[in-house]
Design a protein around this nucleic acid. Structure first.
Length: 574
RNA sequence: CGGGGCGUAGCGCAGCUUGGUAGCGCGCUUGCUUUGGGAGCAAGAUGUCGAGUGUUCAAAUCACUCCGCCCCGACCA
């Protein structure tokens, strides 16, 4: 395409409300524009990149045996009531009414619609397995949209849903998608890694997230340097420690100490001059309306997702003052396990502690030399805390590392959560009715593009990996008013077009510097510079965006060289 | 939802404290010069100063209300 005819509004200034690099560059490079909070338009350049990602996804999904469909974005409330999510999903689900006053929502995900579709058309095991996918707009009314298209409210997503007759089949479908996802992200030229994850509100039993490594990522991930264990921080397991032999001879008599207005771990630690590792933090949670005390070592953090999963609670929040008062008989800050009137579970971290410090369940008092078994009982010990540096790998004995990542894909083994609620069943060989087993698999398209930029930029702009580049080459005549220069540029441009290379001819009447800056900003991997001095020798310059290296080629050879580079970079990724 | 910040030309910002003709840089238009890393000179165009109400002879500026956007937190695919 001729640059002079393109709608490609680039900008020099960094937009004041763009926080992360990818957002700044996507706006400056004329890829996106914000319409309103969390809602973006894609301009021609941006949309080309989106389509590149979509194309790679389509190829790999099709190869994995999935078939493309297109489901409605506007969905009737009835389906969501049937699955139980109309009430459960919360404010993220954008609801509205039509002229007949019927309730609808904008689809934040499509489990309900696809399950409805499949249950009506699939009746027998002969029609299974079945994997359907779509690339479609989702709407989630995010509490706080941020980072441009990385976390927005309206966004393009590829979502796939598998239906199987039995567990073994479901496992196979999951593996196929897992492989397809690896192919997709590798082909996109991303540095990524699949990690074990919590399945969240989508539900289900097992899941992996595909994380693109980036400092700006919203997720923390842990991985083992020795084995291949990797998990989202919220999922990262901590091995059960060895239980020490009872050392009851070390137990000191329990004492009650007055600690006026001393509430937090730091305050207790300095007031009593004991290490926070010796103090037990007692957190009262409200689990579906039932109070529960969670004990953990003072210097560590409770992982609420683990607590929630452990208790099997649908909703878990920290208890309010009223519940705390009722459970402990004291205001916030003095809770302890001794004599507490609620269920007590404890993190492994306190399993081997002796002579602990805890709250006394009495205002302005703490207890010293508290011991498990003598002074209170623990119903269960479990892994309930947040993983931290220094922990060892739960699978081997290696040290774990922490990095940040952007979640670009997520695969879930759903089981029968939706098929059961919505009665998606089939007849098996014996004519018995059985529930289908489902999996669901998502990829954020725009987020993948943004994540790619987070990994591929420099001070001058974006550096596209070849597979996602909106154009592979830009031909830059240094001065369009020199007939020879322009003629040579046009010839090279025509030749590239003729062999199907995606190419821009920068035919604008701008100074060379402006053209170079724009080419760098929009990140075109290869640039052919046609200038009068080199041309007089029969040469043009080929510059590689990523390395900044340039070399001279005869005007007749440069196209061959460019095609060679494109082919090799595309093959390298696949 | 809690805390904080911002809203003035397409973009980035000044002006507001102490009320009195709406400004700067970039971009845009025209002309001349220039032409290998965001050119120079000259002449121009572009604003319901987020909205409303109030105070005042007079409001971008002061007060109140509302709206929008961003950040931190809470929350969450």
């Amino acid at each position: 395409m001729r640059y002079s005819e393109m709608h490609l509004p680039t900008g020099r200034e960094i937009p004041s409300d763009a926080e992360v690099v990818s957002n700044q560059l996507m706006i400056r490079a004329g890829m996106i524009r914000k319409l309103t909070s969390g809602i973006y338009s894609y301009l021609p350049l941006g949309y080309r990149v989106i389509r590149k990602v979509e194309q790679i996804i389509r190829e790999e999904m099709n190869k994995a045996g999935a078939q493309e469909v297109h489901l409605p974005m506007v969905q009737p409330a009835e389906l969501w009531q049937e699955s139980g999510r109309w009430n459960y999903y919360g404010k993220e689900l954008l609801r509205f009414r039509d002229r007949n006053n019927r309730d609808y929502c904008l689809g934040p995900t499509h489990e309900e619609v696809i399950t409805d579709l499949v249950r009506n058309d699939i009746k027998t095991y002969r029609q299974l397995p079945c994997n359907l996918y779509q690339i479609q707009t989702k709407f989630r009314d995010e509490v706080r949209p941020r980072f441009g298209v990385m976390r927005c409210r309206e966004f393009g997503m590829k979502d796939a849903y598998s239906f199987d007759a039995d567990e073994a089949g479901a496992e196979k479908s999951y593996q196929k998608m897992f492989t397809a996802y690896n192919n997709i992200f590798r082909r996109c030229g991303l540095q990524y890694r699949p990690v074990e994850a919590d399945s969240g509100s989508i539900g289900g039993s097992f899941s992996h997230e595909f994380m693109v490594m980036a400092e700006s990522g919203e997720d923390a991930i842990v991985f083992c340097e020795q084995c291949n264990y990797a998990a989202n921080l919220e999922k990262a397991e901590i091995a059960r420690p060895e239980k020490n032999a009872h050392r009851e001879k070390d137990w000191l008599p329990m004492e009650s100490i007055e600690t006026p207005a001393v509430r937090t771990i730091e305050e207790v630690s300095s007031f009593l001059n004991v290490s926070s590792r010796q103090i037990v933090k007692t957190l009262i949670f409200n689990a579906d309306g039932k109070p529960c005390a969670v004990l953990i070592r003072g210097d560590q953090e409770v992982n609420e997702i683990k607590v929630k999963n452990y208790l099997g609670a649908a909703e878990l929040t920290l208890a309010d003052d009223e519940i705390i008062m009722k459970a402990t008989g004291a205001p916030r800050g003095f809770a302890g396990a001794v004599g507490i009137k609620v269920q007590v579970i404890a993190d492994y971290s306190i399993m081997n502690l002796v002579n602990m410090v805890t709250g006394a369940n009495k205002e302005d008092y703490h207890l010293k030399n508290v011991n498990i078994g003598r002074d209170f009982q623990v119903e269960f010990f479990a892994d309930l805390r947040v993983s931290e540096p220094g922990d060892t790998c739960p699978r081997c004995i290696g040290a774990i590392k922490f990095v940040r990542g952007i979640e670009v894909g997520h695969v879930f083994k759903l089981g029968t959560k939706y098929s059961k609620a919505m009665k998606a069943s089939y007849l098996d060989k014996d004519g018995k009715e059985k529930t289908m087993i489902m999996g669901c698999y998502g990829i954020g398209i725009g987020r993948t593009v943004a994540a790619c930029i987070e990994q591929n930029f420099d001070q001058n702009g974006i550096i596209w990996p070849m597979p996602l580049a909106p154009y592979a080459v830009i031909v830059t005549p240094v001065n369009i008013n020199e007939p020879d220069v322009m003629k040579a540029s046009e010839d090279i441009y025509a030749e590239l077009l003729a062999c199907g290379v995606e190419v821009i001819l920068d035919d604008r009447d701008e100074r060379a510097g402006v053209k170079f800056k724009d080419a760098d900003l929009i990140g075109i991997p290869l640039r052919i510079v046609v200038g009068p001095k080199n041309l007089a020798q029969g040469h043009v310059e080929l510059k590689i965006r990523r390395t900044g290296k340039s070399s001279l080629y005869a005007t007749g050879d440069v196209v061959t060289e460019v095609r060679k580079i494109i082919t090799s970079e595309l093959n390298e990724a696949s």
